[in-house]
Design a protein around this nucleic acid. Structure first.
Lengths: 237, 237
DNA sequence: GCCCCTTTTTGGTATGTACCAATTGGTGGG
DNA sequence: CCCACCAATTGGTACATACCAAAAAGGGGC
C-alpha cells in the first residue's frame, strides 16, 4: 500500500501509527533510544521526526525532547470572539502574558498598511498566549493613537475587543485578514518555547472603521501545529 | 543583530539576502557547488536550504534542483470567484488538468461531513491546477448525486460554480471552510511535482444549500509556498 | 524533606563518506 | 537536424562519528 522502501518512511509510519493508536502519549523516548529501537542512524531518525512534526503529530520543546501534539485549537480570525471565549468553549485552559507595551513610530510595513505617515504615534503591545500551559501564539497588536485617543491610558491586558466596542464605539468594522505559512525566528521562537526556524502560521489583520480608515494592525505568529483556521459564511450570487 | 553563531544560520541568511536583493533568480547552483561556496558540509547546507524552503523563498522540483519561489498567489476560499478569474486578475497564467473523475461511495470522513449514509453515490473529481506552468494545488471535489441529480452527466472540466448557479439554482449557499498546515504525501506530492513529505496547506470546504443540507465536500492540497489566504469582511457588533 | 552541586543524559550542530537512481548534457550515428 | 545512446552530474537516502551546551537526574549536606 504505502511507500515503505526508505528507512525514514518506515520509521515515520511506525511512530505515526503508535501515536494514532494512542500507544504513545506525552513525551517520546530519547532520540538515541528510538535509533536503537528502529535500528537507524540519528540523522535518519531526525528526518522522520521532522516530518511527523510537519504533520502536526509531534512537537519539540526547545532542547527538552519530543512530545505528542495535543488536539488543535479551532480559530476563526474573522470573528470578534475573544481568545478566552473560544478556547474555553473548546475545553482549553487559556492564559496570556503581556511581554511588552510601548508607544512608538510605525515601521514601514505598518505605515503602508494603515496609510499613516512615519511620525504618527502607535501603541504597540506584544503578548504570548497559551493553552493548557503551552505557548501557541505571539501577538503583536498596533493601535493608532490618532484614531483611538488615549488608548495607551487603558489597561490593555484586559479584553481589547470590549474596549473598542464600549469606549471607542466601534460597532461596525472592516476586517482584512491574511494567513500564510511562515518560519518562526528568534526572539519570537523563544517566546513560543521552540527553536529558531520552526514552522509557523502568520495571521495579519488590518481593522478599519466604517469609513474605511485603518486604526489597528495585528500580527499573530502561531505554532503551525496548534491551530486549525475555521471560517463559516453565507454567500449569495 | 541577528543570530549568526551557527553555520547553517549563516548560510541561510547569506542565501536569503541574495534572493531578496534579487542577485539570485531562477535556479540555484548545485548543492555541492553551494557547499564549496560557503565551506560547509552538505547536510549543513541542506538544513539551511530546508529552512529557506519553509520561509517560502525557495522550492525544489522533484530531483532537479532548487529554484527561487515566484510571488505568492492571493486566494480567498470564502469567495466563489473562479480559479481562472482570480489568477489572471493577479497576472498569472492558470491551467487545470483533470486527473480523474468517478462515481463512488463516500469514505468515512466525507460521509460524516455531509451527513450521508455510506451507500449514497458521490461524483468525485481530482484535478491539478497550475500557475505559470507550476503545479500549485491538487483539488478533490465531491458532489452528492442525491442533491445534484445527474451532476456526473455534465462536463465538470468547465466552471463548476457556474453550473451550480445556472443548472442547480444554488444562489444562496453556506460555506464552511477550514485551513491547516499539513504534509503532502504521494501520490499527491507527485502531482505537485514535489517530494513525499513536503510542506503544504490543506483547505477543506463543505458547501450547504440555504436549508443547511450539505451537497459538496472539497479538499484542496496547496504547496505551502504558493499561496497567501486573504479574507475581507464587514463585521457588526 | 528540601536545596544545592555534580554527573549523566540528551538534543542541537557539524563533518565526511558512500551509494543509488534520476536527470542532464554531450556525443555519435542515422 | 533529430534522435538514440552513454557518461557525468546531481539530488535523495543513509551511516558513523564527534563535540558542546542545556536539561535532567542523581547524590550529598543541611
Amino acid at each position: 500500500m504505502s511507500n515503505v522502501c526508505f528507512a525514514y518512511v518506515h520509521v515515520r509510519e511506525a511512530i505515526s501509527q503508535q501515536i494514532i493508536e494512542q500507544h504513545l502519549t506525552g513525551s517520546l523516548p530519547s532520540e538515541r533510544e528510538l535509533c536503537a529501537t528502529y535500528d537507524v542512524a540519528r540523522s535518519t531518525l531526525r528526518q522522520a521526526l521532522g516530518q511527523l512534526e510537519h504533520m502536526g503529530l509531534i512537537y519539540r520543546k526547545n532542547r527538552s525532547g519530543w512530545f505528542v501534539c495535543p488536539r488543535k485549537l479551532k480559530y476563526d480570525p474573522m470573528q470578534h470572539t475573544s481568545f478566552l471565549q473560544y478556547t474555553t468553549a473548546q475545553g482549553f485552559q487559556p492564559s496570556t502574558k503581556l511581554v511588552e507595551q510601548k508607544k512608538q513610530k510605525p515601521c514601514k510595513e505598518i505605515a503602508a498598511a494603515l496609510e499613516l505617515d512615519a511620525r504618527t504615534s502607535l501603541t504597540s503591545i506584544l503578548r504570548v498566549r497559551s493553552v493548557d500551559g503551552r505557548a501557541v501564539v505571539v501577538e503583536n497588536l498596533n493601535f493608532s493613537n490618532k484614531h483611538l485617543p488615549d488608548i495607551d491610558k487603558h489597561d490593555l491586558s484586559l479584553s481589547i475587543s470590549i474596549l473598542l466596542k464600549n469606549t471607542y464605539h466601534q460597532h461596525d468594522v472592516l476586517y482584512d485578514v491574511t494567513v500564510e505559512s511562515c518560519c518562526l525566528f528568534n526572539p519570537i521562537a523563544q517566546l513560543l518555547d521552540t527553536y529558531d526556524g520552526a514552522l509557523g502560521l502568520k495571521v495579519t489583520r488590518i481593522v478599519r472603521d466604517k469609513d474605511g480608515i485603518a486604526f489597528e494592525f495585528d500580527r499573530e505568529f502561531w505554532r503551525h501545529d496548534a491551530l486549525m483556521i475555521e471560517n463559516k459564511a453565507k454567500l449569495h450570487f
